[in-house]
Design a protein around this nucleic acid. Structure first.
Lengths: 123, 123
DNA sequence: AAAACAATTTAAAGATTATTTAATTGTTAA
DNA sequence: TTAACAATTAAATAATCTTTAAATTGTTTT
């Protein structure tokens, strides 16, 4: 058993619970997965797009117009958001419509965003 | 009044509520602020450090040992987390001790992280 | 005061990511 | 089937960020 109180792998011994904490630590895969999701919304352009798509369904050129970005840039971010499972798309004629995914993850992140906005910018 | 139903600034008119949504859109400052916070935890190294510091107080070399990083790298990430207000520090002798800030923001983000981990990695 | 330890800073390298422009694909309407 | 519009892709550039190695600062102990 590694990282227990006897093997004493840590340079210093401080807290009593620190080896228990290390044992409960999320795996690298979990860390990567969670940070991968949060990274999506850590970019202001994508956060703006995601917020918008939480509130209405829109086509690419409208998203570009609303967010002051070019279509290719929007397309790039939409692709990332979609492959993270945060948004979905459908085609109708010439246009692609995007909206926030109807999932626990997307809904939960939407709430988190509003909450952070309230806490950090209490206007 | 810009972006109302008459000025018709959008290339296409789709949803009925889209101009209402645009009017309610968070300011660029708010978007930057929220994405700035989320970006902190969008990096796997910082997420790991923050998770650890949500569960115990630790000194820099222990954090480095636990996360398999060098001290300078840890120091760099600690500085970013601290200037975002997510962690605090205190000196005791030669060592600097870090832990998660006791704020609504830090607590809320901790819950969000655990929630995302549960949703995306249901082990 | 010197030596040892802990942490930070700096500068540079390496890696990743965002944006732009141009070209291309897909769909509809003339 | 050609023209027009919407969206994506590709290549290149620009910008940002992470990590490393070396040097420096701060604190304690001998």
């Amino acid at each position: 058993m590694l990282n227990n109180e006897n093997s004493c792998a840590l340079p210093h011994k401080h807290a009593e619970n620190e080896y228990k904490v290390i044992n409960d630590m999320p795996s690298d895969d979990t860390i990567r997965s969670v940070s991968g999701i949060l990274k999506q919304l850590g970019d202001p352009s994508r956060l703006k797009i995601f917020w918008l798509l939480c509130h209405c369904e829109e086509c690419v050129i409208n998203i570009a117009a609303i967010t002051n970005m070019t279509s290719p840039a929007v397309s790039h971010h939409l692709r990332l958001l979609k492959s993270s499972g945060l948004i979905t798309s459908r085609r109708e004629g010439k246009e692609m419509y995007y909206k926030a995914a109807d999932t626990e993850m997307a809904n939960s992140l939407h709430l988190t965003i509003e909450s952070i906005a309230d806490i950090s910018c209490p206007n």
